[in-house]
Amino acid sequence: MPQTLKACTPPPNPMAPSMTRLTRFIRESADVFTFDLAPERATPFAPGQFNMLYAFGVGEIPISISGAADAPDRLTHTIRAVGPVSAALGRLKAGDQVGLRGPFGVGWPVEEAKGFDVLLIGGGIGLAPLRPAIYWLLRHRAAYGRVGVLYGARTPDDLIFVSELEEWRRTPDFQLRVAVERAGPDWTGDVGYVTPLLSKLRYDPGDAIAMICGPEVMIRATALALEDAGIADSRIFVSMERNMKCAIGHCGHCQFGPLFICKDGPVHRYDRVRDLLAYREL
């Protein structure tokens, strides 16, 4: 089963955020930033889970946790400013407050993946929800087979976690390939989508688990490519995005056929969603 850590005793007012202090703000790219929150109580979470973040007076949005799961007193989030709430969060600085509810949902199958080769494939901001899984694999490196990360972004300027990418590139027993869709002459890496890079990774398709996060078109294409490469659909995991107003299974917004993305996901085993993903506008 994909890993999940649910609040043992759910809060009596599950829709009321608790206020946390922003302790560190990092600009990743023109429209992406990362910040750490110091929750009042230690908040254990599983890689792939998300929080609801509230910008005072503006609104609340679902944001995955992008930091390491072994530091429950620090909740790291990496956010792309695309609209009112994410932009308001991007205007905050250390010392400001952010409302927090969470963690919610079912995360990446990091336990189930022990003993397997592991492929992690992120598109755009989709690398952020994968980062806790990457940290986990690095920390428990001996428990896993070969590990490969593919990361695709629009342009070199859109890359996030840049210094960490360099570190991972130098890490032994860790494969990393980065592709951008468009680049100038000073880009020496791959150009195009991530899916063709799959063939550049070393892994045993009969013994591999894959985790994908990115835009839905990218998820579909990547999952198909993985299946073509011989990875069973039950060993592919995808993190999905839907509108979310509650994250607790009450508002109905995140429905995807029979599934509630907020409580049955956001990480789903691909064989359980593949047929649904085939329908437009479901």
């Binding site: 007076g57 503006v58 609340e60 107003k245 509650c246 508002c251 917004h253």
Partner: peptide, 10 residues
């Protein structure tokens, strides 16, 4: 039907 939305105001 139970669906709801939220509105944040200040």
């Amino acid at each position: 039907c139970f669906c709801t939305s939220v509105e944040d105001t200040s």
